[in-house]
Write a protein that binds this DNA or RNA. Structure first.
Length: 196
DNA sequence: AGGAAGATCTACT
DNA sequence: GTAGATCTTCCTA
């Protein structure tokens, strides 16, 4: 693998919306023995705290969502409909928030990921929040792990690419806020849905 | 101990 | 476009 440049904690100490956009085009890697699984982040969604009816923190801090209000730059994982959702905690001081990783463009460990989640087309491998956690072998045990160190089992690394950012309402959300909080790389074929 | 909800996915029509 | 399957967690009793 190429040289790895991770981001410091302050990269994640911004509003979820800002971090959601800043994470696009960056690498996400998960360590698997001697191999790395992962790829480019091509689709994200921002979630806030008590004021966001779609947020896991809506209704109060509980055991299972406590990570959302703790230190930014850490993994926050919860379950929905049998699948694990991968988030990265992102918020200013004394706030609550996280960024949901919705889709990856696979670049590393593709063979292993295909074993974890057999598919015919590579465009089916990690093009959805539940799909990518299965392919990368991510579950609740990674909850709280910092993505700010390349020594972590899972981390985010820098990458310099140019692209246009598209946005839309969040996917699958019953009670959404009145603004676009889903962001994706325009024209990328690994975005989970064409909806804009 | 049981019921309900959910930021999903797949397979159909 | 929609129905149904499926799991983890929370709420009430």
């Amino acid at each position: 693998m190429m040289t790895v440049e991770v981001f410091p904690l302050r990269f994640y100490e911004e509003s979820p919306e800002i971090v959601a956009k800043n994470l696009l085009g960056k690498f996400l890697f998960k360590r698997e023995d001697d191999a790395f699984l992962g790829g480019l982040i091509v689709e994200t969604e921002a979630y806030y705290g008590f004021e966001d009816p779609a947020s896991r923190a809506f209704g109060g801090i509980k055991n299972y969502n406590i990570t959302m209000q703790e230190e930014p730059g850490r993994v926050f994982i919860y379950n929905v409909h049998k699948y694990w959702m991968l988030n990265i905690v992102a918020h200013g001081p004394n706030r609550i928030g996280a960024v949901l990783i919705r889709a990856l463009q696979p670049t590393e460990g593709i063979e292993i990921m295909k074993r974890n989640r057999p598919v015919r087309e590579i465009t089916d491998l990690t093009t959805g929040p539940g799909k990518l956690t299965l392919a990368l072998g991510i579950d609740k045990h990674l909850n709280g792990v910092p993505v700010t160190s390349s020594e972590s089992q899972i981390f985010v690394a820098n990458n310099n690419v140019k692209f246009e950012i598209g946005s839309s309402r969040r996917i699958g959300v019953k009670k959404d806020l009145n603004q676009n909080l889903r962001f994706f790389i325009k024209g990328n074929e690994f975005v989970s849905t064409k909806r804009e």
